[in-house]
Amino acid sequence: MPCPLAETFQAQSIWTSKAQYADAERKFHTKVHVSGGVSEECTLVSEIAKARQHLKNSLERMDDIAALAGKDVLDRISALERENASLYQVVNELKKLQLQSENRIKSLEQSLAGVSIGDAPKPAVAAATVPNEDDVDLFDSDSEEEDDAIAKIREQRLAEYAAKKSKKPALIAKSNVILDVKPWDDETDMKLMEQCVRKIECDGLLWGTARLVPLAFGIHKLTISCVVEDEKVSIDWLTEEIEKNDEYVQSVDVAAFNKI
């Protein structure tokens, strides 16, 4: 026959109340003496022993957990202390930099104040008399003298700049021109025509290479290059001069015109 008290022990894994435990033990002994069963007593004793051991193991685990938790807390506290020390050092360095910056700003302000005071014009003070308010001229000549001095300096610098600019060689605008000189027919002497073209000379004109380019029916045109200064030589004038050789030249066309 199963023991109700044994079933009660099996249903509960941990005894948390000492009074409950003492009452259960008292009931157990009463039940044993009344029933006189040996096998039930042994089973109940075994269950109680198991319950005690389980309680002991649970307490030991709680101690271990508390020890680990305490170690973790200590580690965190140590890390926070190290971080606090580092932040304290950074704050001290920032304070030092701030003080240095303030000192530098003060020294600069003092130096600037000294320069402005030293450069300011000193007013003339009468030796024996104090000027009256009516005698004070709000439009004093000091400002006019300063304006005159600034104007003189500006004019001097402009003159120096103009002198330097006049010494620099002026850029000469030049162009590279290729002309197509066409003859009347295939019997035109192209060598004589080229010689006539090259006889045209003036300041700013420089003839270059020339070649014969076939057109049609045995007729060739003379393609000749030249370099001209834009201010001295006009292309219209040059073509007119070439076309004056009407014995050889039929027409002149500008094949290419490029600025150099």
Results as ranks from 00 to 15, higher is better:
residue 114 G to P: 02
residue 179 L to F: 04
residue 137 D to E: 14
residue 9 F to S: 09
residue 146 E to T: 03
residue 121 P to N: 03
residue 18 K to P: 08
residue 130 V to I: 14
residue 9 F to M: 12
residue 63 D to P: 01
residue 177 V to L: 07
residue 57 N to S: 13
residue 259 K to P: 00
residue 46 S to P: 00
residue 39 S to D: 15
residue 247 E to N: 09
residue 230 D to I: 13
residue 158 L to W: 02
residue 68 L to W: 09
residue 87 L to H: 11
residue 6 A to D: 02
residue 228 V to T: 08
residue 240 E to I: 05
residue 46 S to F: 04
residue 41 E to S: 09
residue 2 P to C: 01
residue 106 K to T: 15
residue 61 R to E: 15
residue 46 S to T: 01
residue 136 V to N: 06
residue 218 G to F: 00
residue 105 I to M: 06
residue 21 Y to V: 09
residue 126 A to P: 03
residue 35 S to R: 07
residue 110 Q to Y: 05
residue 254 V to A: 04
residue 253 D to Q: 13
residue 101 S to R: 10
residue 26 R to H: 04
residue 140 D to K: 08
residue 109 E to W: 03
residue 173 A to P: 07
residue 255 A to G: 00
residue 39 S to R: 12
residue 237 W to H: 11
residue 236 D to I: 04
residue 128 A to D: 14
residue 180 D to M: 04
residue 199 K to M: 09
residue 174 K to I: 02
residue 163 A to R: 07
residue 190 M to C: 05
residue 67 A to N: 03
residue 57 N to I: 03
residue 111 S to K: 05
residue 24 A to L: 12
residue 237 W to R: 01
residue 229 E to R: 07
residue 93 E to S: 09
residue 11 A to I: 11
residue 20 Q to A: 13
residue 69 A to R: 14
residue 53 Q to L: 13
residue 234 S to G: 00
residue 10 Q to C: 09
residue 197 V to T: 01
residue 199 K to L: 07
residue 105 I to W: 03
residue 2 P to E: 11
residue 3 C to T: 02
residue 144 E to R: 15
